[in-house]
Design a protein around this nucleic acid. Structure first.
Ligand SMILES: [Mn+2]
Ligand SMILES: [Mn+2]
Ligand SMILES: [Mn+2]
Ligand SMILES: [Mn+2]
Lengths: 220, 220
DNA sequence: ATTCTGATTTTGATTGGCCAAAATAAAAAG
DNA sequence: CTTTTTATTTTGGCCAATCAAAATCAGAAT
């Protein structure tokens, strides 16, 4: 049985690997994500390497083995199904469920997980628009444009928000930029590093390019 | 923050204390319940004593302080609400939920807990008939007779089953002796150490006195 | 080619939980 | 009263996960 710690390491290797073009995750990034010192990450990764869950290249970085990836995706499935369940069934806010799921993802049995999946009618995305890895088969992660780079003045739909910080999510929520909402990107001002968006039936909002790049859209 | 281990120790001290007339729980019983060696229990209890969660009398036993009892009841509340939720909402069998709740009881936040409580409309007992400690105030644990000692030939109702073993619970389930069901105790045979019961609209069952004593009833 | 710098690894130490087995104390038996 | 039994505590050690700080390495800069 993998401990919560092991599950968290594998999940973070997977998540960092997704948002980076390199095929190896640097130890520094991993240590930062796990909120441990670099030495701690190194020794843990060595242990995971002995357990065949990761491939470790000293001074270069780390990648998941097929076995490690399977486990990471299973944790991610639990995390995201739990988030959706907390929002849709128990009525928690999508801005807060991440922290809850961070604990519950390690405590849910396969049986309970599949009941939740059935109860929710086999959903494909969580409250943040993150795709839910299926029990079997591969997860499709469509490549999406963001508010920082999608076409201007076209009606589009918010598909995914790439940040779990409750402060940021509350701002997104207040501004009407939640997943599923229709929006139009009005214009961009490179000098001011700003993007102005009009969400359907809400006042326009201006946000910085960095924030805009964390909000992904799909074309209508 | 109390670790899962600490929470489990406190819960077991509480539970053993409930089913015993002595006011101190013996280290041996606790070690057995926690499935650790006696020495491990001793050193853990010393630590809990330093943390003011228990009162420890060397060579005599251990009891919860008010603070420790509060924490134990909070864990028990989580455990029992989770069990009921798993049965009533996700449709798991009452014979299996104990093991699930044993993990989840440590991973549920106060916020989620109170949502579950609201969703279930503030229930007072779990699927086994065990009382659910309220968020505030005292839990009432009515003194109940068992199938081994209640009056004969009187219509009564199964109120509580004092064993979490899935094998035993499945037998109870098959026999129609689940909490809420009406039954009549037909007769007892001290020589055979046996009790014969007729559950409403089910064939009669005969069980040993020890098993009968774990099934509690309330008068109609 | 040499030096510097930043990332990484190593080393030595700590903490929480655990076990095995020896030591001890209390209770039961004689 | 002693002796024996049984419960409990102590001792010494292990493993997972962590940190602080020293050592090392690789690439960048000179
Ligand atoms: Mn986690
Ligand atoms: Mn999410
Ligand atoms: Mn538990
Ligand atoms: Mn129960």
């Amino acid at each position: 049985m993998a401990s919560s710690t092991v599950e968290n390491y594998l999940k973070h290797v997977y998540l960092i690997g997704q948002t980076s073009d390199q095929d190896l995750v640097a130890m520094g990034q991993l240590a930062t994500a796990m909120e441990v010192t670099p030495g701690t990450a190194t020794s843990m990764i060595k242990a995971l390497s002995d357990a065949e869950l990761v491939r470790y290249e000293p001074r270069a970085g780390v990648a998941l083995t097929p076995q490690g990836e399977k486990l990471a995706l299973h944790v991610l499935r639990r995390h995201r199904l739990v988030e959706l369940f907390l929002v849709n069934v128990l009525g928690l806010s999508w801005t807060e469920v991440h922290a809850e799921a961070e604990e519950l993802e390690h405590a849910i049995s396969d049986k309970v997980l599949e009941r939740i999946d059935t109860y929710l009618d086999h959903p494909s995305v969580d409250p943040h628009g993150d795709p839910i890895p299926p029990a079997t088969g591969v997860m499709d992660t469509p490549t999406l444009a963001s508010l920082a780079d999608c076409p201007l003045t076209q009606p589009t739909r918010i598909a995914r928000v790439l940040d779990q910080d409750p402060g940021f999510l509350k701002f997104v929520d207040r501004s009407g930029l939640t997943p599923g909402r229709g929006v139009v990107v009005q214009h961009r001002d490179p000098a001011a590093d700003a993007v102005t968006i009009t969400p359907d039936s809400q006042p326009p909002v201006t946000l910085g390019t960095h924030a805009a790049s964390k909000i992904l859209v799909e074309s209508e």
